[in-house]
């Protein structure tokens, strides 16, 4: 019995969800098909079939490095942003203190500033303090733009958890931190995953800020936009993008599977 909610109404919710899924995956399917064509411009019908683009991807060290760079930056940025988001959410919802609203505003404010403006601002900051630009500076920048998303998502879930749960745990002798760990974290796990994934995705495809901060090692979007300055590079890039997505899907399914087994 999954529908404890409002019972079976006539609203075709599943159809709506599947429709959304189709719209999201349709362009990717087009790219997927195109990546097996011999043509270099994105058009149909395909003039011939080939696996060359995938072979070229595996040959292209710079491209694989760029993808790895993006992965590393995404993980660092998403983890930092999620950590900060959690701390802010717990502080704001579980404690009464002066500046509560201010803290929340601070965590939400990065949403308001367009990425390109943040890029210039970070560029000025890192030049001023003489911190050489690198993947670390990109990760710092991306961690900041992820904070609002992480905070809002965690906040929305945590506001629904009854603080009495923690109080009860503490009545049973737990310290507050261990109450958080034993009671709150397990309940929050799926939300933390969503928050982390959102921040990761925001970072993974971000170019406006990255172009100002990358230094010598390009992230994948910086590499991709650069390569697209030339004709003929499109199919290789698409093949790489397809591989990256398949990798993400596989990792996600494995992660969910492992979690499912734990349950």
């Amino acid at each position: 019995m999954t529908a404890i909610g409002v019972g079976r109404t006539r609203v075709p919710l599943r159809t709506f969800y599947v429709g959304m899924l189709v719209l999201l995956y349709l362009p990717i399917a087009v790219l997927f098909i195109f990546s097996f064509g011999t043509g270099t411009t994105l058009s149909f019908p395909l003039s011939g079939l080939t696996l060359d683009w995938y072979a070229e991807v595996l040959d292209n060290g710079a491209m694989i490095d760029a993808a790895r760079n993006s992965l590393v930056v995404g993980v660092a940025a998403a983890t930092t942003a999620t950590a900060i988001g959690c701390l802010v959410a717990v502080a704001v919802l579980r404690f009464r203190f002066r500046g509560r609203g201010l803290l929340l505003a601070l965590a939400g404010l990065p949403l308001v500033v367009p990425f390109v403006v943040m890029g210039v601002a970070f560029f000025l900051l890192f030049v001023t303090v003489d911190l050489p630009r690198s993947l670390v500076t990109v990760a710092i920048g991306h961690s900041v733009i992820g904070v609002p998303y992480a905070t809002l998502i965690v906040l929305a879930r945590l506001s629904g958890l009854d603080p009495a749960l923690e109080d009860a745990a503490m009545d049973l002798g737990a310290t507050y931190p261990s109450a958080l760990r034993r009671v709150v974290v397990p309940l929050m796990a799926p939300t933390l995953l969503s928050a982390w994934l959102t921040c990761f995705i925001v970072s993974f495809d971000e170019i406006a800020l990255a172009i100002f901060l990358v230094g010598g090692d390009p992230t994948f979007p910086v590499f991709l936009y650069g390569q697209l300055r030339f004709a003929q590079r499109l199919p290789v890039l698409i093949a790489m993008a397809v591989l990256l997505m398949l990798g993400t899907v596989a990792l996600t399914l494995i992660a969910l599977r492992i979690r499912g087994r734990d349950d």
Binding site: D65, C86, G216
Partner: peptide, 29 residues
């Protein structure tokens, strides 16, 4: 606990980023 856990993850992430940069300086493809 959550702060500790995430701090560790975060440090690992930045160390990775720093390493990728370092190794990148030596051999970026």
């Amino acid at each position: 606990y959550p702060a500790r856990f995430l701090t560790v993850l975060m440090i690992i992430g930045f160390v990775l980023a720093a390493c990728a940069t370092q190794s990148g300086d030596g051999s970026p493809g």
